[in-house]
Write a protein that binds this DNA or RNA. Structure first.
Lengths: 341, 341
DNA sequence: GATCGTAAGGTTAACGTTTACTCTAGGTTC
DNA sequence: GAACCTAGAGTAAACGTTAACCTTACGATC
């Protein structure tokens, strides 16, 4: 910069003014400096600007684990917005480890982040509280375990999703519908379950506790719980998986026993991650608009950082039913080990 | 920091020495300052250190697109290493767009990155060249289109993978083996194909050009090309997909026609991404040790940044055959639309 | 023609650290 | 006991940029 100033025969102040599009520079001088800047391969030093202006141009996204489902959809949305805004995205995975969380939090406080996107349904070390105290702008994505208005949140209509999924299965004629939930200490899991119950009750069907299984949103749970369900004396005709990963597990377990989808068993998922459409058969699922959630969260955060007021502190996007090919009318009769042809 | 210095009755210099574990401070003073630091919630300002020391503590990972397959495996490995080292991971997707690439490159030059991991098989704007010129440490992951020794590269034995996959199918008795490659302008795609050819030739089987389809590593290509293959007068008994995403496409196309895997068609993939094991049936595939590649790349980069010499500039990790359930002996007779029972 | 306003540009300090260098006091060596 | 060394601590400059404030000159206004 000094170099440019020298070459233009002006002070660095003037160059800085040009660079930052601030007034106080004559038209001719501005043009001349502008040209010089473009000719040289000068790039503003990030650290110095950061130090001086107090903005790092970085946004942290914290999540538990890079998994390629839910998280990836969100990340794509976030990335899209940030790319345009000039902010850079820092990704951090806590691995659900307390020490790692603490480490990250400590590092965050060095003012190297302008804002944070929290993709954690719950946390161990009071991240939200700390961020609030430190006045670091942040937005939480996905329903938080503690409903709060203290900070902005982006969610989706989970309860309704659970209701819709169940209602859809009912409409196909199913009466014995199993659900494999997420961990029930998470509100978001309980919301799905509540929607499921509500739909059943409205249809006048008693809720059978044997058909409610708890998973932890992992594929393995889908496998395990499906096997348990199949071993029931009166197995369900449809399975509602708490997320698409678990639905993939259901597929796998059914495949093992050579039970066909949807002829012998209907399966519905939740999330509509990228691979849901790619499963065989393509998975019918409740769509959460993940990318859009990511986009909105990023946009809200940017507004927060810019000090602009938010219209609402909690945005809830609509879930929707995506009908593909994994659900059909219930089978008649028991599950045969050999498929009826 | 000033505050701490004041409270300890010393100069900031001394505090700085303590913080950076440098000599020149008495044992007692050091302990006293140490205690004060721990008591206060002081965190070193990132920007100032960055400015002074010239290190940002940031590493950029550039990729074309967040996809959740190959890229995710690598990212996980990278993330793991960086987390421990104290570096933060900045993720950037070029979307294969020239303007976006250029934008990123320009931003990178503001010295806000200590190093770069390049997850691009090819690029539009000479990223590698620029990084080289600017002396920014970087490591390329995955085979580059231009074989080079100018910068360090992490790859895997792709050719051998292609060979092994084909050989495995041959060993099962297949004679008509199709391959759906990646874009043939990429060396890495051609390497798979070359391995395939070699295996066939060694087995004395003529290469049938009709069985070689070009895809672009996307699921859709798997679907499209499989359909083309099935419409052949003499369709193959096995399909070798250039990557697992394409294999998923193959699954989908086969599902549509109710062709069973592996009874009527064997499918083998490439990469062994997370979801390969979760497909139904679980996908037999050539494993690239993605996480390890990510880890190694990150470690090499850190060493580069630290100015330590590298043992080798090109590391090639071994691919391996992961046998799951998508391959079996070839079917006898033609493909029936109705499955033979 | 004196006064004022304004636009263009410069001076200087500051952002929070680190580091090269300096100073001081106390101990060691002959 | 003088010369020298060393450890502990401090001073001040520097990293590259920005912003508050100041200066100058020129034109407009009455």
């Amino acid at each position: 910069m000094v170099e440019i100033a020298r070459r233009a025969g002006v002070s660095t102040t003037t160059v800085s003014k040009v660079l930052n599009h601030r007034p106080g520079v004559g038209e001719k001088t501005r043009a001349r400096i502008q040209r010089l800047i473009e000719q040289s391969d000068y790039v503003q030093n990030h650290a110095a600007r950061h130090l001086r202006k107090g903005r790092s141009g970085l946004i942290d996204l914290v999540l538990m684990r890079l998994e390629g489902g839910y998280d990836l959809g969100i990340m794509q949305g976030v990335q899209e917005v940030l790319e345009q805004s000039g902010y850079r995205l820092v990704v951090f995975a806590t691995n659900e480890d307390e020490a790692t969380e603490r480490l990250w939090l400590r590092r965050l406080l060095d003012q190297s982040s302008d804002g944070v996107l929290l993709l954690l349904p719950y946390e161990r070390v009071g991240i939200a509280k700390t961020l609030l105290e430190q006045g670091i702008p942040f937005v939480a994505i996905g329903d938080r375990n503690e409903p709060t208005t203290a900070f902005p949140t982006i969610g989706s209509t989970i309860w309704l999703g659970g209701y819709t999924a169940t209602e859809y299965l009912l409409s196909l004629g199913h009466r014995r519908i199993a659900i494999i939930t997420g961990p029930l200490h998470l509100t978001t899991s309980r919301a799905r379950l509540a929607g499921y119950r509500e739909a059943l009750e409205q249809a006048g069907i008693p809720v059978d506790p044997a058909l409610i299984c708890e998973g932890s949103y992992l594929l393995g749970d889908g496998i395990r719980q499906t096997e348990a369900l199949l071993d029931l004396p009166d197995p369900p005709t449809a399975i509602f998986a708490g997320n698409d990963a678990q639905a993939a597990g259901v597929y796998q377990a059914l495949y093992r026993r050579r039970i066909r989808i949807p002829e012998e068993m209907s399966v519905i998922g939740f999330d509509d991650v990228t691979y849901a459409a790619h499963m065989a058969p393509p998975l019918t699922t409740i769509r959460q608009p993940l990318e859009e959630m990511g986009r909105m969260a990023a946009e809200m955060l940017l507004r927060l950082i810019a000090g602009q007021p938010l219209e609402t502190h909690h945005v809830e996007l609509a879930t929707s039913l995506v009908i593909r090919e994994s659900c059909g009318p219930p089978r008649r009769g028991p599950l045969g080990r050999e498929t009826a042809s």
